[in-house]
């Protein structure tokens, strides 16, 4: 997958215009994540499908609700009973979709390229959880939302996908069109930190 020519068309981060404002917040480091290939995988969790997809993506799919597992160059996030988000920082989106889809199709599943559907912010620092707690009603205490957990919920009035990498290290996926709102919300919330 990796040897195909890299696209030369310029790619723009949806939050590029807010990069400086986000970096100005000192209490919590907020980094614009690099783009990744991402597919939305729909698959019967009961059959042999998950194992077949796991073989293609290089790691097991998370079994429990609202959890994630690490892939060689990405994440496998469980979004629903028959739904996962699989990311790769190495594959090209169209290849990632094709590969996962092919494996899933054999088991009645499917994969759809959603690489540009969401963008993501990485929040690091001791107060990262506090910052999210100013906009999010989910119980984000480390004991309730430890490393390995993820959750689709609301941040302010926007749907987001939160990922716990560690106590002081969280990631937030948000639909591209809502990203500006979410970034502005976090910058505003960080005002008193």
């Amino acid at each position: 997958m990796a040897d195909l020519p890299v696209p030369t068309l310029p790619w723009a981060h949806p939050l590029e215009s807010r990069r400086a404002r986000l970096e100005d917040v000192s209490a919590v480091r907020q980094e614009l994540s690099a783009p990744v290939a991402a597919v939305d995988l729909r698959l019967d969790p009961a059959g042999a499908g998950p194992a077949a997809v796991a073989a293609v993506v290089g790691g097991p799919l998370p079994e429990r609700p609202d959890t994630w597992t690490a892939l060689p160059a990405g994440l496998a996030l469980r979004l629903g009973p028959d739904e996962w988000l699989l990311t790769s920082s190495r594959a090209r989106p169209e290849d990632w979709e094709f590969g996962v889809d092919e494996a899933a199709l054999a088991h009645g599943g499917s994969a759809v390229d959603v690489s540009a559907q969401r963008t993501s912010l990485r929040l690091r620092g001791q107060r990262a959880r506090d910052l999210l707690a100013s906009c999010c009603a989910l119980d984000l205490r480390p004991a309730s939302f430890p490393r390995g957990r993820c959750a689709q919920t609301l941040l302010g009035q926007s749907a987001v996908l939160l990922v716990a990498h560690d106590t002081d290290d969280l990631q937030l996926f948000v639909r591209t069109s809502f990203a500006g709102y979410v970034a502005d919300l976090l910058v505003d919330a960080a005002h008193d930190f």
Partner: peptide, 10 residues
């Protein structure tokens, strides 16, 4: 049934 208890606005 899948995500557990969440606020009603969700």
């Amino acid at each position: 049934p899948w995500c557990g208890p969440r606020e009603e606005v969700e």
